[in-house]
Amino acid sequence: MTVTARPPEPPKEGRRRGGAALLDAVLRFRALGLVVALVLLVATTWLANSRFLSAQSVRDILLSTALTLLLACGMTMVVVGRGIDLSVASVLGLSAFGTATVLADHPGLPVPLAALVGVGIGAACGAVNGVVIAYGRVPALVATLGTLYVFRGLVYFLAGGSRISAGELPRGFLDFGTARVLGVPWLFLIAVAALLAVGEFLRRHRAGRDLYAIGSHEEAARLAGIPIPSRLLLAYVVSGTLAGLGGVLYAARYGTVDASAGYGMELDIVAAVVVGGVAIFGGSGSVFGAALGALLLTVINNALPVLGVDPFWQRAVVGALIIAAIALDRLVALRVAASLRGRDADVH
């Protein structure tokens, strides 16, 4: 029926390595670029004002990074699986207010138990997202945009305009928010622990690798027998749980909690993850890159006032960073594809 024989053709050896090497270099370049940007930014700011690197200022940066970092870990898991979780800031708000309320209403309650309440709230919120997305097959964007407002609405509903001030919270809880080990804030250590755990999970455990597989090629993942819904559910539950933990830490750190806790923070988190090299299309990127992104964002926030820049620029910078990061990824991908295509074109 069809043309039957096959064309003899010179073997195309020798070009196999090129694409991979290029890709590797680009990925490494991303982390390196972030580190260089960080160093440059810190150095410039420090030259402008040497107090920028004082112990207090550094602690401030670490404390602020802690929350972003914690939430960015969960977001990385979700984005790697080609999803997105826009509800994290609302979950944080709900958990912070819930934890503070429980502690204010029951002064005798042990702090860890109260923390468990906050984490539980987060896990439940994450489970709602996960079920709707993984089993209800609602696009992650729609689902978490919806729950962003639902969870935030719940906080406002519960708070009813009231706020919980530091005076109503137990001493031990507030102390924990500022306590340090060897000069490093506890909050930061907790965030780093979460980072290491999620990093280990994503790198060295089957369920974690499954998320990369799902984000890389969902149909192939299905054929490979990967249980997609349960993996996605897990990612959203972890994201929610970490946001819940973030809420507890938020309450401990700031002491005063009202219904707007963490409002708008989801943009910072998305920015940290995307700037850190986690592809918004899923399948690639690491939680350590996201951590660098989170650190960079916080440093920018803290450096702007030191450098005499209007702090109102902060939000615009976040937006610009998101766009620059995805545009850069796209351009790099085009270059790689073009170089692969060019090599194929040599055959004639």
């Binding site: 998305v270 920015a271 918004i280 939000r315 976040v318 998101i322 766009i323 796209r330």
Partner: peptide, 23 residues
């Protein structure tokens, strides 16, 4: 022109345009 996903782009400009309003 760049072929970026509109979701990511407009999340970025959501922050950027609001930020510029504050500026």
């Amino acid at each position: 022109v760049l072929g970026l996903p509109s979701l990511a782009v407009t999340i970025g400009t959501l922050a950027l345009y609001r930020g510029l309003a504050y500026v």
